[in-house]
Design a protein around this nucleic acid. Structure first.
Lengths: 208, 208
DNA sequence: TAAGCTATGTGATATTTGTCACTGTTTCGT
DNA sequence: ACGAAACAGTGACAAATATCACATAGCTTA
């Protein structure tokens, strides 16, 4: 049991809290592409990423989507938390970005712990701050940047997330995350290739 | 002093907390148009709106802006709170939307109270949720809606905020809040007038 | 009262992004 | 091995929004 709780590399979470997490939660493995939270579904668990990453998106009825932020190891989905405490359906969709190991905490536990464990409360608060700033960045990019800048920044974000200059992604996936058309992405990537900023191959983009 | 704390119509804030607010804070009156928080300035106080309203915007170096959300009576600016606890400069600008009476709380008090007063912690948390959802709405509108829909929704928001069908606003102000061009707003409003959805006069829009 | 400033409306054009249609290549499944 | 599906690239065109220039009307100030 001690071995297991060592898996939890969350800053500022004390051992007692980690114990609680392990005892209350269930560890599950997911593959890239798995949808672990569907929009408009009720939230039963709070996912804490042990390894890997998730992406959180907003989608419209007609299928259009927009990326909000990524969830890395040591983080959770505050939108799930939000949905849980207001007993509402999820307003976002969470998709596994890289193969992941996730600890699923029953949502009522996550809520109860806020008043019971200061380190948990602090953890949730800090994640709220982080996500809030990330949403501000999304608003900023959409309001003030052209689509070509947004593509470049999205590639940089993916590079940071995986730590690799080789990004496994399709043009369609990038288009989905940016809320634009696949052809727009293909054209802009081709231009970036001409400018020797990236190298393209099928299902893969290499940042130079 | 008891008369004063009665001014604070914040749900779920107990009397002891209200007492603290009144003792620690300073009440000030502001006029519509006053800027009470400039982007890139350090945050010293947390503004709680007693009467009136504020609008919070993001601005770009070249002067372009975008409206994030309104702050009504009984609410505060979580971005100020965020900036205060991370000892950072403000990432937003706050402008008085309607003549307002505001209670200014020293930021260090606001921070200390989170662990000291459960009702304050709850208040801040709930406002975070609210703002988070509002930012999601902004992202949604920008990603999935055309500018004409966004103008209509902005007018509806202003109507809700003031409780009046007569909205005192210029085309330029709407353009600033939406991050678009003044001519675009004038044209769309003119069309809405032709469709008998609004009535236009200088500095005023009446929703029919 | 008149000049100056602000707000609004309009025409024309430019830019950016989106859509449609299609082709070619690569990968996957039977 | 072959056909289907997915992915990528490209041309042409459409739609939405932005920009520029300018005129007119309303309001403020001297």
């Amino acid at each position: 049991m001690i071995n297991d709780s060592a898996k939890i590399s969350i800053p500022n979470i004390d051992n007692e809290m980690k114990q609680q997490l392990m005892e209350s939660g269930t560890i599950k493995n997911f593959k890239a592409g798995d949808v672990i939270l569907q929009e408009n579904s009720y939230i039963k668990t709070l996912p804490i990423v042990l390894q890997g990453s998730l992406k959180v998106l907003r989608e419209e009825e007609d299928g259009k989507e927009i990326l909000l932020y990524y969830i890395k190891a040591g983080e959770t989905c505050v939108m799930s938390f939000l949905g849980g405490i207001s007993n509402d359906k999820s307003k976002v969709k969470a998709v596994v970005e890289e193969d992941s190991e996730i600890l699923l905490i029953p949502i009522h536990n996550a809520q109860d712990w806020v008043s019971k464990y200061p380190s948990w409360c602090d953890f949730i608060f800090k994640l709220y701050h982080k996500r809030f700033e990330e949403l501000l960045s999304v608003v900023n990019a959409m309001a003030f940047q052209k689509i070509d800048q947004r593509i470049v920044e999205l590639l940089q974000k993916k590079q940071q997330l995986t730590g690799s200059k080789e990004i496994n992604v399709t043009h369609q996936q990038l288009a989905d995350e940016l809320g634009t058309a696949r052809e727009v992405v293909s054209r802009l990537l081709k231009q970036l290739e001409r400018e020797k900023k990236i190298a393209l191959s099928r299902n893969k983009i290499t940042i130079l």
